[in-house]
Amino acid sequence: MNLTTWMDDTDQALESAARRWVAQRHRFEDRQHLAPDRRRHDPAIWRSLAELGWFAVATSEAHGGFGLRPSSIALLCQIAGSALLTEPLLSSGVLAPQLIEALGDATQRSKWLPDMQQGTRIVVALVPPDQDVGPGVTLTADGRLQGRLEVAVDADIADALLIPADGRLWYLPVSASGVQRQPYPLLDGRGAATVHLAAAIAEPLADPEGRIADAMAQARALAAVAVASDSLGLMQSAFDQTLEHLKTRRQFGMPIGSNQALQHRAVDAYIRIAESRAVIDEAVAALCGNAPPVEAARAVHAAKALACENARKLTQEAVQMHGGIGITEEHAASHYLRRARVNAQWHGAEDLHMAAFVRAGGAPTSQEI
């Protein structure tokens, strides 16, 4: 990511270490030789991310973190998108620690956070993209969870889930009685599961200060900016690979990049990256600073909608400009396209965020035009 006004020394140190780690430990060519289950999730890789401090950017120093750092979250998610990382960074490394610190009591924090930050426990937070969209779970008369969770991203490899229900957040081990999972891969190699709950016993987070509404709103904002940043990372890598292909692939004795039509398409792709970076920077700055809530919400919704739309269009162009090899499993271009497709839906599709952007005062309504 380019140096921006909100980056500080911690951000730069995390980014530098993360890029070195990706170059040494997570090369696309090497990952392709692994078995599918290890490409989906590798416990050794997960522990390495913990050692690098990737899971310390959503909790305060009092609980083993660096503080809640939207800037660091955006940087790490951008690198994750660039590297096609399939580990549950957002759901387990960011959202779950943030929610447990915000809503748990001292006992719950000490019981769960250390293992999560050391990479030995995967707790996946299921955060609906809109406050009016519930996860399909209700509470029985005796306080147990009942219902069905569709497309619960990262639930396929979770040790426990954080599930909102009945105005509270519940910690549910997947080994608990009454929990059944049907895991399946997503389009891009990440995974999800359909989770069936039949009177499952879960522990509610204490929420001693009654902060669940604010904590969930904060989680939704972090998730939207994180997915937008992931999309920016995959866009940049797809563009870099495509530009190199245009320079080196030759037809009729000339690089195909000498074709003016392809040059124009490459410029359009560059513009998509630049405008996505601009709106993400604005959203991160709003979350890092003291922007009014409406202004911050508007920036977040704009970033998620625009960056994911641009990523989808840019990666489609990247595959087209690579030709037939671009659609193969062996080439990264097809993987960037598939990841962009998943990101476009994850934590709220474009139309949901555009509608929220308008409600937040981001554009005139039809009555105002």
Rank of each mutant, 00 (worst) to 15 (best):
T59K: 10
T59V: 13
S60C: 10
G64C: 09
G65A: 09
G65H: 11
G65S: 08
F66C: 10
F66E: 15
R69H: 13
P70E: 11
P70R: 09
S71I: 09
S72Q: 15
L76Q: 14
C77I: 03
Q78A: 15
Q78W: 06
I79L: 15
I79Y: 14
A80M: 12
A80C: 15
G81D: 05
S82N: 14
A83N: 14
A83H: 07
L85G: 00
T86L: 03
E87A: 14
P88Q: 02
L89M: 12
S91D: 12
S91V: 12
G93Q: 04
G93C: 03
P97D: 03
Q98G: 01
Q98W: 06
E101Y: 08
G104T: 00
G104V: 01
T107P: 01
S110G: 04
L113T: 03
P114D: 07
P114R: 12
I122L: 11
I122Q: 06
L126Q: 11
V127W: 00
P129R: 04
V133A: 15
V133E: 13
G134A: 11
G136S: 12
A141V: 08
G143V: 00
L145Q: 11
Q146I: 00
R148I: 13
E150W: 12
V151K: 10
V151F: 12
V151Y: 08
V151E: 14
A152E: 07
A155E: 02
I157Q: 10
A158W: 02
L161E: 08
